[in-house]
């Protein structure tokens, strides 16, 4: 058995408020091999975002990991038991992240180019200024963007879809091994969504990256992911290869998630008359 790229074991995360403590992620295991795409699905509030943020060690206030171990390519980056905490060293360099809000994840007061080159300067110390500029433009061009224009633009001057492509460019420019896409396509319109999904799929295969794709959209997950983990109230209720899991869901929650997807090949059932 090969070493998985990402392995999460027994992860527990708690969110404390003034009134109560919620177990946002409850004893979750996850294993992702190189070059594979894993989907993390569940309703909003099921703990998906909390889980992936724990992988890179970024929490909102009052949220903290209370147990578990995270391993990246054989190296332990987090272990609650012995206090290992090396997540900061992999953020941005080995793990790239794309968030939901297309414009929100770019600083409104800085040009997109400056935000991209800043990340390259931080992580690719061996590149000189010219090489960084070149890499930035190449990456943006790979996202089917007008590189020169986007470099010069402020986020508000670009469309939501363009901003999200720029955010993907920033995430992959440093050539990470793992890309986390947290509802990265959810806020986009249907056309931009489709082309961004296609782009992500291509990036994964040409860069032999792995991807952790977080979504509430079962249809989207089915299209893109090799395997799925279903999360409910912080607990992984079901997992398996995408085709198997969708064909024969075991857990009621998964069945409901799948049933909630609108289908065009089956006429809706008649409402029983009252």
């Amino acid at each position: 058995m090969t070493t998985p790229l990402l392995e999460i074991e027994g992860l527990r995360v708690e969110a404390r408020s003034e009134f109560e403590t919620i177990r946002a992620v409850d004893d979750v295991d996850l294993r992702l091999d190189r070059g594979r795409v894993a989907g993390l699905i569940g309703e909003s509030g099921s703990g998906k975002t909390t889980l992936v943020r724990s992988v890179i060690g970024l929490h909102q206030r009052n949220v903290s990991i209370t147990g578990g171990r995270i391993t990246l390519d054989g190296t332990v980056i987090y272990d609650h038991a012995d206090g290992t905490d090396r997540q900061a060293s992999v953020r941005g360099s080995r793990i790239g992240t794309v968030f939901q809000q297309p414009r929100g994840s770019l600083n409104p007061l800085k040009r997109v180019g400056a935000q991209l080159t800043e990340v390259l300067r931080t992580h690719c110390g061996d590149l000189d200024k010219q090489a960084i500029g070149q890499r930035a433009r190449d990456t943006l061009a790979r996202m089917d963007l007008d590189a020169e224009r986007v470099m010069r633009s402020y986020p508000h001057q670009l469309s939501g879809g363009m901003c999200q492509r720029a955010a993907v460019a920033i995430a992959v420019a440093t050539e990470p091994e793992l890309l986390i896409a947290d509802e990265a396509t959810s806020a986009l319109d249907v056309t931009s969504q489709a082309s961004l999904v296609e782009l992500l799929r291509e990036l994964v295969s040409e860069r032999s990256m792995s991807m952790l794709f977080v979504t509430h959209d079962v249809l989207l997950a089915a299209e893109l992911c090799d395997e799925l983990v279903v999360l409910r109230s912080g607990v992984a209720v079901e997992r398996g290869a995408t085709a198997d899991l969708l064909a024969d869901p075991q857990h009621d929650y998964t069945k409901n998630l799948i049933a909630a997807v609108p289908r065009w090949d089956v006429a809706p059932e008649e409402e029983p008359a009252t």
Partner: peptide, 17 residues
């Protein structure tokens, strides 16, 4: 608390940056 700050951290920028 803005998302672009979380994003900047996720991109591996240091606390000072």
């Amino acid at each position: 608390e803005e998302p672009y700050i979380a994003a900047a951290r996720a991109r591996g920028l240091g606390g000072r940056a």
